[in-house]
């Protein structure tokens, strides 16, 4: 049972009602359960932020690292314990902003890690500040006039290397989400799953959404599957792009 992977005694979680992280956690644990990943063969490394707290709710060895430092910790763990499945779960602020340099270089070194990035486009835990993935024009508490800059293009960033795995999905598209996570876990190198999710309390409300469900409905409407075999995902396209493989340093 996937519930065996959760510390149900700690429920209810600290996440706000309507948050997408709970969905992400249930889907990820379902995939792990299906693949037979548990405390005997896996470890979860997470960073600071709402998403990072997921590690503490999972019933296996987990490390809640410093802000932005998931990847150096995870890469070292994988080097020392090559047989361990090392899963990094963190938010977009943690992974791409304060941890951006590590993302660049851990991807370049093709460390054999699966990174699940909860992209809610905002610093939720601190109250809703804009981050590097916040769309231009979005109003947040730190961008009252709307975010001034274009967001980071994670796909293009990660496709810079000779080998890469980048998947984009949302917490609304749960079958697709599970498929992306499963394929990322099977990828023998650095894999990155960009999972759009909703932060209703500290982001969505300021954009005019009234409930978490409204945000999910917006994901359903806005996001479309990329055509089969697409080498690149267009804006709001869901799918997996990958190339190369596979020579990992710890294989």
């Amino acid at each position: 049972m996937f519930k065996d992977l959760l510390r149900l005694e700690l429920f209810p979680t600290m996440w706000c009602p309507g948050c997408g992280i709970g969905t992400l956690m249930s889907q990820v644990t379902m995939v792990m359960d299906e693949l037979g990943l548990d405390h005997t063969n896996s470890a979860v490394i997470s960073g600071i932020g709402c998403t990072g707290r997921m590690a503490g709710y999972m019933n296996l060895d987990s490390v809640y690292t410093l802000h932005g430092r998931t990847l150096p910790v995870a890469e070292a763990v994988k080097m020392v314990q090559p047989d361990l499945k090392v899963i990094v779960i963190s938010g977009d602020g943690d992974l791409t902003s304060i941890g951006g340099n590590h993302l660049l270089h851990t991807a370049r070194r093709n460390a054999n890690l699966t990174v699940l990035c909860n992209t809610n486009e905002v610093y939720g835990l601190t109250g809703g500040h804009a981050g590097p993935t916040t769309p231009k024009g979005a109003k947040t508490i730190s961008t009252p006039e709307g975010a001034a800059y274009e967001p980071l293009n994670l796909q293009n960033l990660l496709k810079g290397g000779s080998t890469y795995f980048y998947a984009r999905t949302t917490v609304y598209h749960q079958f697709h989400l599970r498929r992306c996570v499963k394929e990322a876990l099977a990828w023998p190198g650095f894999s990155f799953v960009d999972i759009t999710s909703q932060c209703i309390e500290n982001y969505g409300r300021r954009l005019g959404f009234k409930t978490g469900y409204e945000m999910l409905a917006w994901f359903r409407e806005k996001y479309k599957m990329a055509p089969d075999g697409a080498e690149s995902l267009g804006p709001f396209e869901l799918g997996i792009v990958r190339k190369g493989q596979t020579e990992t340093k710890d294989a």
Binding site: V63, P72, V73, E75, A76, M79
Partner: peptide, 20 residues
Amino acid sequence: IQSEDEIGAVNAIMGASLAG
């Protein structure tokens, strides 16, 4: 690991230690 910076290096040794 020849890290990308000292922050990466010190966090890597923390992870390696936890890994045994």
